[in-house]
């Protein structure tokens, strides 16, 4: 027994990991028209959110206000 929507907020049977595999194979052999496909950056961000999202948001929820300094550093680095 499984749920349609799993605890990583991914969809059972069409998980992101499967999409990543298909996207990689699709780089090697023609698989059809995906109109530009998923895009590597999108896949990386979504993989982080699906697989590591909970611990990150757990820390942010509890200690987010104390991590403002890190955010400021990140903003500076982006500049």
């Amino acid at each position: 027994m499984s749920t349609v929507h799993n605890n990583r907020y991914d969809l059972a049977g069409i998980e992101l990991s499967r999409l990543i595999k298909t996207a990689i194979v699709g780089k090697i052999i023609p698989m059809g028209n995906f109109r530009g496909g998923p895009g590597g950056r999108c896949l990386v961000v979504l993989a982080l959110l699906h697989y590591l999202g909970y611990p990150v948001y757990r820390i942010l929820a509890q200690y987010g206000h104390r991590l403002q300094i890190l955010r400021r550093i990140a903003v500076k680095l982006r500049r």
């Binding site: 907020y9 959110l49 699906h50 929820a61």
Partner: peptide
């Protein structure tokens, strides 16, 4: 709820 934050972010 961090789970809700994660879901909405996704």
């Amino acid at each position: 709820d961090p789970g809700e934050d994660q879901r909405k972010s996704i």
